[in-house]
Design a binder for these strands. Sequence first.
DNA 1: TCACAACTGAGACTCAGTCTCACTCTATCT
DNA 2: AGATAGAGTGAGACTGAGTCTCAGTTGTGA
Lengths: 141, 141
Amino acid sequence: MQSALLRSIDQAGIRLTGPRRAVAGLIAKRDGHFTAADLVVDARRRRVEVGRATVFRLLDLLVAERLVERVDLPDGSHAYVPCEASHHHHLVCTSCGVIAEVDDCGIDAVTTEAARRTGFKIDAHRLELFGRCGDCKRKRG
Amino acid sequence: MQSALLRSIDQAGIRLTGPRRAVAGLIAKRDGHFTAADLVVDARRRRVEVGRATVFRLLDLLVAERLVERVDLPDGSHAYVPCEASHHHHLVCTSCGVIAEVDDCGIDAVTTEAARRTGFKIDAHRLELFGRCGDCKRKRG
DNA sequence: TCACAACTGAGACTCAGTCTCACTCTATCT
DNA sequence: AGATAGAGTGAGACTGAGTCTCAGTTGTGA
């Protein structure tokens, strides 16, 4: 059986090599966000022999193909999230780390207004929302 | 004469020492965003003797007091921008690096909608806009 | 099957940021 | 003004993420 991620990688025209299959497998098994270091640790734990450089290289490719997105956490560190190719934003639960995606929900009006006020021509934006997911909200009141 | 930043530092209750005055001076002379490394280089160039650790420590304090804000650039690196203490967002010119600030312009509607769809309770958000400022737009068509 | 471009791992390297520690300075109190 | 506590300091070692190089390997289209 082939994971959806592996299929997307193939469709994106990224050469399917042994190490890449292995790393894709590790990503598919992950829930929520992960760092490059997480994958390296996973690989070592499961006796999957993959070089650190290879992990970084594959992540770069996946980001370029928008199969994975890079998220800047509030503490300044970086994480990756496997995601849909369409434009969307992330909600990060600061309590358990789970990430939800929302597609456009009115941000265009905001960017247009900001452009009008400043004279900028806006090409891209990044919106990240931080808070607590439904479960954590319930657990801790 | 005392810079506005220096005055704000004093008002924030941050002890005013020689090295801090020097670094504040360097920040005040900067236009747009800068990195901690930029300040270290500036200091060396002007023969201001300030340790690297001191620069990082002061930046941390300024961020905590919201006199300076940390921005995540699209390439994943970090920069700092001196700014107003009130909540606002940054527009980064990807061509010349200048940064404009806009205060709230309708983002609340977006966060409310995202919260409704996902069940999250949203505590914080980060919005960064990237594009070209008026000048660069004109220069390059 | 073959040839070659793309990929690989190891490990050296870079660079931002942190930490420690002995020393120095500032603010405050008398 | 002088004493003092405790905050701040610089040097430099350290950490950890990410990059780069290079010789050897592998996937793929012909």
